[in-house]
């Protein structure tokens, strides 16, 4: 009690609360500068360097675009998307009008409903890519986590499967793609397909390339459960299912999540490459089309796509990190 009074009187003597708050704002400032100011400085320096260096690089399509051109093109891409949307809406209204008129004349007439034939815009391609990557990643997770648990629990099986994992893990998406394409076209035949073939091809390629980190991490995590906890499980005579759900899986969740984050990063990279090569809809196709197009704006548009790809990859990783913090017990 007396020490408390001593300190408070000493604070008053030195200008009291003001001095204290100043110290705290100083700390606050140091923190914000680390979290906000320094990254900003980094980005600004990069933009400046880019702005100065870009005009020096000359290509057959003119000089390399600087940040200003890319920014303008980004606005342009957005505008094209808005315009396209308006046209599509008009198209739908016109079609409905016409069909209504035909039906009024002859109620038995067969009316055609066609979707808008315009080319997908940059934003449409982003949406397509996001859907494809999530589908491929979820499929990879659905395969890798259960398989990883089985491998982690059974040493013999692990020894048998491990060489296969080591061999398939480093395979590039470009090598898988032709095989996947052929197999999908041969096996996925239906009158009224639920998915586009190109979607399936991209998705399966993404799955094949991205499941390995999750598979390996799950196996390692499951095999490394604290033996004391395994003994607790045995003493309690937990059933196999309870044992997996209540002991093995929670214990390996942190390391599984690390694998999932790596997998999602790979999935996103692989998808862009697969879309470029297979000409299936998505950001990769956008880049390839612009490259083939070869107009004076192409490079700016490709650069806008590159930045979008990077930013989306970053956001995906952040989402995984947030999810990990919510779910994993060690965070």
């Amino acid at each position: 009690m007396s020490t408390l009074m001593n300190t408070s009187s000493r604070i008053r003597r030195f200008g009291g609360l003001k001095a204290l708050t100043d110290r705290f704002t100083g700390m606050e400032l140091a923190r914000t500068s680390k979290e906000l100011v320094l990254p900003m400085v980094g980005i600004l320096v990069f933009l400046g360097f880019w702005h100065l260096a870009a005009p020096q690089v000359n290509t057959s399509l003119g000089s390399f675009p600087g940040p200003v051109q890319v920014w303008e093109q980004s606005g342009q891409l957005w505008q094209e998307h808005i315009n396209q949307r308006e046209r599509a809406d008009k198209f739908v209204i016109m079609q409905e009008d016409r069909n209504a008129r035909i039906l009024a004349k002859n109620p038995d007439a067969e009316v055609k409903i066609r979707s808008y034939p315009g080319a997908p815009t940059f934003v449409d391609q982003i949406v397509t890519s996001l859907i494809t990557v999530m589908a491929g990643f979820l499929l990879a997770t659905a395969i890798a986590v259960p398989l990883g648990i089985v491998l982690g629990l059974n040493r013999h099986l692990q020894a048998a499967i491990n060489p296969l994992i080591q061999i398939f893990k480093p395979v590039s998406p470009l090598a898988w793609l032709p095989l996947v394409t052929m197999v999908v076209s041969a096996t996925y035949v239906s009158e009224d397909p639920m998915f586009e073939k190109s979607f399936l091809t991209s998705m399966i390629t993404v799955t094949l390339c991205s499941l390995w980190p999750t598979l390996i991490n799950t196996g390692v995590g499951v095999a490394a459960v604290n033996p004391d906890l395994l003994n607790v499980s045995r003493v309690l005579r937990l059933s196999f299912w309870t044992h997996v759900m209540k002991v093995v899986l929670p214990s390996s969740i942190p390391i599984i999540f690390t694998g999932l984050r790596v997998s999602l990063g790979i999935a996103w990279m692989v998808l862009i490459a697969a879309e470029m090569l297979a000409q299936s809809p998505g950001l990769g196709k956008f880049v390839w089309d612009e490259f083939q197009n070869g107009s004076s704006q192409s490079l700016s548009r490709i650069m806008a796509a590159v930045l979008a790809i990077g930013f989306i990859g970053f956001v995906l990783d952040r989402i995984m990190l947030t999810l990990q913090k919510k779910i994993a017990w060690n965070e």
């Binding site: 604290n226 004391d228 906890l229 003994n231 607790v232 045995r234 003493v235 309690l236 005579r237 209540k246 002991v247 929670p250 214990s251 969740i253 017990w329 060690n330």
Partner: peptide, 28 residues
């Protein structure tokens, strides 16, 4: 084979780190 009629107190507690104190006892 092990069984709950022979409960074990392990040398270093062996609690599930992801469960609360209550949930650890609850599991048993």
């Amino acid at each position: 084979s092990p069984g709950p009629e022979r409960a074990v107190v392990f040398q270093n507690h062996a609690l599930m780190p992801w469960l609360t104190v209550y949930e650890n006892v609850e599991l048993a």
